[in-house]
Structures are given as C-alpha cells and as structure tokens.
Design a protein around this nucleic acid. Structure first.
Lengths: 143, 143
DNA sequence: CTGAATCCCTGACGATACTG
DNA sequence: CAGTATCGTCAGGGATTCAG
C-alpha cells in the first residue's frame, strides 16, 4: 500500500495517491514509530561510530564530534532499551565498559544507507548552488 | 566507502570497519546533512500528507494530526527553502494557497520507503514483546 | 576512565487570539 | 481560509562537577 505510494513518489506521480484521511494515518504510523525511536541529533551518529568499531565510552565520545558526556550516556541508555546495543561492564580497575551492537541494529543498515546516499546527493546540490551564488537565501545545511 | 560499511552492517559484520577517526567523520557528514534538513517531528508527516494529495494549508493541517498552525507555517517555509515544495497564492477571495511538491522532493522516496519499512517491522517486534509481556521496561514506542 | 548528578538555557513545540 | 502575533511550556542538550 505504502510501497505503491513510494513507487509513485519515486516516479514523480503525485496525483495518483488520492485524498484519504484513514490511509494517511496508517501510512504515517510506521514512519512516526521509526522517528520516535531514532529521534534526536545523536542516534545515527552514535550508531555509525559504533559500526566503525568504537566500543568504549571514550572512543565513541571522540568519534562523535563534541557530544556531552551526559547526553551520550542518555542516548546509550535509550539505544540499549530499544535493543540496539548491549552494555558489558568489565570488572577491572579502573572499570572499563564495552558497548556492543546487537544483531537487531543491523536492521537499520538500509535506512542508514538511504540516508547517507540522500545526504551525499543533497550536499552536492547545495555546493553547486553556493558555487553558482544562486541562493541569497542560503538553505544553509552545510556543516 | 560508506556503501561497503553498510553492506557489512546489513550482513552483521561489525568488526571489519576498523577504527579511523577521519573515515568516521566523512561518513558522518552526509547523514547529519540529511538529518539537518529533515529535522523535527513534522517534516516527514507533512510530506506524506502532501504526497497523498493535500495541497491546501487547511487540508495539510487536518491530514497531519493536530499540528499547530504556527508550526505548520514554519515547517512549510523551511520545506520551501530547501526546495521540497513551492507556494502558490491564488488571488481570489478569500485568498487560497496551494503548496505543491517539487520534483526534487521525489528524491526522498527511497528514504521514506526504508523508514516506513523499518517502522513497520519495528512495530511488529514491539507488539510481540507486549503480547509476551516480556518488557517490564517497555521501550514504549507505540502510538 | 566511566559515568552519574547538578544546574541552566535555548529553541522546538503548543494554545489562543487576532488580522487580511 | 491562511496565516501572524504573543505568550507559555518543557525537554534536549551543554558545561561543570563529583564519585566509584
């Protein structure tokens, strides 16, 4: 159902979907669920950092540019609650902790990939606009 | 480069990526760009509503559950700035306005589709957990 | 080193009322 | 109908400090 809508969308056929409040609501729900779990500035950056092999609190913190310790702590808890990672405390001294991605986190692969592809494409578009000095009203998404 | 990473991820091979701060930063940038443009609670819901044929301010407002007029107004401006839609004012009385998705907005199709698929999958997972009364610590993403 | 606790502040979001 | 103006709330996020 939504699949169709998206295919239509990818093809630029916007009219076909039609107006239907109920259909709209149903279509919305899963997207909002996803957004609910993946909310905030940090979820994706943290997961990316971890995919790249960072497991220790400090490592992740450095990999994710300038995130505050408290925030990272909170985000890690949320990610753990949602089953994306597991916390392993090693009883050494000083205590060291490992955060390990679960298999469930791999289900995010396609989402992240699409996000990455889109971001790359969009970035190039913005760059060209800047080069061409088109946008007086700069949409400023550049980092 | 990131493609590989994501393939690895989809296959559950987390170790392979290795630790590399520079690589991490580069991988992060496009994702954050995307998140920057698509931020907030409302961007996706609004676009979905519009894909489904809603063009008028009031229509969109009704289709998107309970969004405040001010907020909708702001979001529409942002979406326009980022080239996702065009505002067309008809000089009738009372004034009517049309918001029309641009072709550029279609590039979001794949992203939204993945988001929708993942959300659907995740929702089912949560439902099962609730049924099984597993989660005392309910991850509560249900709407 | 890890990460919890505290304090604080900005900005996203919301409700209501009002104008063209 | 389509917004703007105004005011208010609250959580995300940041700086700093403290403890195991």
């Amino acid at each position: 159902m939504m699949e169709d809508m998206m295919k239509e969308m990818a093809m630029g056929d916007f009219e076909a979907a039609g107006i239907d409040a109920e259909r709209c609501t149903r279509a919305l729900a899963p997207v909002r669920d996803a957004l609910y779990v993946l909310n905030g500035k940090w979820k994706f950056p943290i997961i990316i950092a971890m995919v790249q092999g960072n497991k220790r609190f400090g490592e992740i913190r450095k990999a994710v540019d300038k995130i505050a310790a408290k925030v990272l702590s909170n985000e890690l808890k949320e990610l753990e609650l949602n089953g994306f990672l597991v916390r392993k405390v090693h009883d050494t001294f000083p205590v060291s902790t490992e955060y390990v991605l679960t298999e469930y986190s791999t289900t995010l692969g396609p989402v992240m990939n699409e996000l990455w592809k889109w971001g790359t494409m969009h970035r190039e578009k913005i760059m060209k606009q800047v080069d061409a000095k088109e946008s007086k009203t700069a949409p400023h998404p550049i980092s």
